[in-house]
Amino acid sequence: MSEMSKIVRTIAAIVFPFIMIYGLYVIAHGHLTPGGGFQGGAIVASACALLLVAYGSMWTMRRIGEKRLSVFESIGAFFFIALALLGLFFGAVFFNNFLAGSSFLFGDIPMVGSNTGDMNTGGVLPLMNFAVGIKVVAGLFVIILVMAYASNHMEKKRGEKQG
């Protein structure tokens, strides 16, 4: 995909931070409001897809290679499984929520019933949300990036053959 006109590029650059902030909000408040790692990751990947459409796949590939995105996805998967294994060590079972109730990071217990919500609750759930968020952003964006780059490359080769 080649880059689009200057109007589209400017509007995409203005809109991009707002979509990004909304996606990061959905990831970070996954244990309080509807949403979570997968939903917020899909929104952030949509913002990156907007940049890809506006600026072209060559520009995006130069900024973020697919190797770096693969590394990010592996980091997300590693942290997810590592948190589950830490539950096995500190608690009793795999996927044990060992941070809930301890006076450590994210360790508070909220009042039962409807309450105003506190960021410092949830045990390992916010950390797992972040791990899955990184994984989903990298995974969904690398699919679109690699497909767009290959399609652009193929089109260029077809043009060379004809001309």
Partner: peptide, 13 residues
């Protein structure tokens, strides 16, 4: 968003 992007890239190719 993402499925439409994938479909349009495939149609373009």
């Amino acid at each position: 968003c993402l499925t439409t992007a994938i479909l349009i890239i495939a149609i373009k190719a």
